[in-house]
Every structure is written in C-alpha cells, then in structure tokens.
Design a protein around this nucleic acid. Structure first.
Lengths: 224, 224
DNA sequence: ATAATGCTTCGGCTACCATCGAAGCATGAA
DNA sequence: TTCATGCTTCGATGGTAGCCGAAGCATTAT
C-alpha cells in the first residue's frame, strides 16, 4: 500500500525533501530524515518498489527524485489534509529545535529564520516571487549593496539561478536559495552573525547574540 | 500524519468501504475490515481525530462518512498511485468473490456487473456522463421503455437525481446510482433476474441463470 | 422491570518494522 | 596496487501499534 510508505516519518521527511523537484543523493536524504545510511537505504528501496521515487546512478552516487507530478500532487494533497486539522507534521527528535530554527540547506539558510527572511524580502518588495521563480527588484539590489555589501554582478553563475524558492520541510514554506541565498549566508558568517555548528555533519546554524539582533532588524516580519 | 492513518490495512478497508459516499455504522465497518468491534472503535476514533471521517449519532448506531470530497479525492489519488505499480489493493476476505461480482449499494446494483452495465449504457450513448454527472439521452429513454418497461416520469424525485455515478470500491470505476439505478435493480428483481442474498445483512445479489443471460444480452460490453 | 444490541474503554499479548552496528560491494582517488 | 567514499545487505534489538477478551455505558426492545 502506498499510504503506508508515506506514513512512516522518516520516509515522509525524505519525500518532503524531494518535493522541491531536485534530485538528492541517498546520504543527503538520510541526513534530511535524521537516520543512518543503512536505514535510509532500506527506506529508499521500499519507496522505489512502491513507484514513488526513481533512482539515477551517477558515479558512486545514487540520486533519487519523485517519479512524476502525480506523486507530487498526491503528496501535496496529503499535506493539505494534514494541515487543516492542525495535525501538521511536527518533527520530533533530539536535534530538532535548533534545526527548526536555523540550518544549512545546501549552502543557504533554511528553517524558521530562513523563511522569515524571504517573507520580509517579499513584503518590502525587495524580491518578487511567483511560485518557484524569484526575481530581485531594483530596490532589492540597492538594499543588498547597502546593508550586506553584496553586488548583483557577484551573483551571476552559468548554471545556477540567482534566486530560487526552496521548500522548507520544517515550515512547509519557502526560503531563499540560489546564488543570492548562498551569498547572504556566506556574508552572515563573515559578519560573525552566525556560523555552522562545529559538530561534524551537523546542519545547525548558530546565531550570535548580536547577529540575531542585526538579522531581526534587517528582516523583521510585518507581524512582530 | 494522515498517511499513516490510511496506511493501516484495516483502516484502508474502512475508508474504501466509505468511498461510495454512503454512511456506514461502526459495526458494518468492522465487518468490512474483518476486525472485531473493539478494534474498529479504536481505528474509527483515530480516523475521526485525523479529520478523515465524521460521525453521526442515530439511535444506538453511529454512522460514519468521509468528511468531504477532498478526502475522497486524496484517497482516489492514492489508489491511483497504487494501481499503476500493480500493487493494487487486493481485497482479501471470505465474502469477497460473490460480493465483487454483484452486490447492493444502497438500492442499486454495484460490483462487476454494475460497472459493466454503466459501461454498456455509455458506449451505446444511452447515457452521457461527465464526471459524477450522468444524463439520460433520448435513445436511452426509448431503450428503457422498450426493454425494461421503465418510463422516465416514474423516476423524478424531489431530492434525488435520476442518474448519478457512484464509485465502485471493488472495481474502482463508476456504476449507476440515482432513482434510475434503483428502478433498474427493482425491475431485475421483479423479472426474477436477480435477488438479494437471503443471508441476513448480506449485500450479495444472486443472478438466476436466465437472468444472467438476459442481462448479458442487454448490457454486453464492447469487449466481449 | 429485564434483556439485548451497539459501541466504547481497559489491559495484556503479539507481531511487525524501523533502527543501528558490522561487514560486504561497488566506484573513484592517490 | 591501496585507500577512501557511497551505498547496500545481514543480523539483532527494541518500541510501537494493532489486536482481542472482558467489562462498562448507553440506547432500544420485550
């Protein structure tokens, strides 16, 4: 049964991670789900047998992606049902709270703060978003140059978009990816606002006291 | 998580049984799932907490129905994904074979023969179907009058549609409901083509030898 | 009244399955 | 070659959840 495949928390996390449409390796998915590679391997073969994901061998990596849009659609439907009962998937686990707050997603900021940042940018018309597409406005360019010393010509890359929305599994909302997302995260580190957790393999991002303050000032949400 | 609710076989059977839109009592659902009432009670309260079903107290019975069409839609989506891997949910159970062939759904014919009948009507343009909506054509009216002595003015009802598509859990396709579906089933009984199984509470419909022949002649599918 | 039916709660049992350690295969690097 | 990385298979463990028997409330029938 397909539903039982999606029902397991670890597998659900993997599938959620794949919802942004990008293919991820087995170990990345293991990390996303917070389980060891052995366990992930077992889950992945089950998901593959169930037709939910498809593998793609590449060197010694194994990339997985959702089979097609139908799968994504059903997953969204399930998430929709879950959302309306308030029975939203709450990640439970030891390394959870810090991870929900701020973490690295590839090379950019994810988690509560990542979502808040994109929200703020959107509210103030520094970026314009339509679905997955995000576009930097003229005001946005000025803002980045003034407050973070990021010039837009640093951001162009032959094979990677400047801005992109990335679905956040803990918040189920978008945060900012692309070269801009990466540049901003790097700048936060340079300014000593935040740094990756020293624990090996950890994706937690720790903000300093002043860093958090500055960040909040720059990206205050309209609701606070 | 919603998916884990649907993932359990017993609960999945219950939900499938509810897919025809009718409300069923707790004990009927227990029977459908092949479990004792105690266990069913536990499952039902979980499904209710998850917002998938809604109870309706009536005397000492408790009727359950799917919350709304969204739920039904997601369930259909899941069934669709399951179907394409050949990993179709195969209903296992003692009372299955006869029930799959022909049974009562409310007051009309369901199961293999019910689906075949609607297929045949549609193929010959005796009805026109768009999603759940079914409409009787002029040829259809003539056909009914000639072969089954059913006149369309017998069928109008203040609160019930003449035709309606009803999803068949065993075939996962539509069969004919509404006042017409009921009238046809009644006519089959009057003509001694078929009768409800005498066993108390059974929904099986037994066709007589000649009844099956006549039925097949009237509603032969294009594929035989 | 008393009994019967429909459903629920409680307690204990059991089976399944997710999980991880250890070891085994691949592929790619030095 | 030898080593390292990515992933898989195997075996054992443990926690969780489905399951049923027994008992308890309701509601309806006699």
């Amino acid at each position: 049964m397909v539903a039982s495949l999606v029902g397991d928390p670890a597998r659900a996390n993997m599938l959620t991670a794949l919802m942004n449409g990008r293919a991820l390796t087995a170990s990345e998915l293991a990390q996303e789900a917070g389980i060891t590679p052995q366990t992930a391997s077992s889950h992945l073969s089950k998901l593959e047998a169930g037709g939910l994901i498809e593998p793609e061998k590449q060197g010694r990596h194994r990339y997985y992606r959702l089979t097609d849009d139908d799968v994504a659609g059903v997953l969204e439907g399930l998430a929709g049902l879950a959302a309306r009962t308030g029975h939203m998937r709450v990640r439970t686990g030891p390394k959870d709270p810090a991870l929900r707050r701020a973490r690295i997603c590839y090379d950019h900021l994810a988690g509560d703060l990542g979502v808040q940042m994109l929200d703020s940018l959107r509210e103030r018309h520094l970026v314009r978003q339509r679905k997955q597409e995000i576009e930097l406005t003229a005001e946005g360019e000025r803002f980045l140059a003034k407050h973070l010393q990021i010039s837009s010509d640093m951001l162009s890359h032959p094979r990677r978009p400047v801005c992109k929305a990335c679905l956040d599994w803990s918040e189920r909302r978008h945060h900012l990816a692309g070269t801009l997302g990466a540049a901003m995260m790097q700048r936060f580190a340079e300014l000593k606002w935040a740094s990756r957790d020293p624990a090996p393999g950890s994706r937690v991002v720790n903000f300093t006291r002043t860093g958090e303050k500055q960040f909040a000032a720059l990206f205050s949400s309209g609701k606070d």
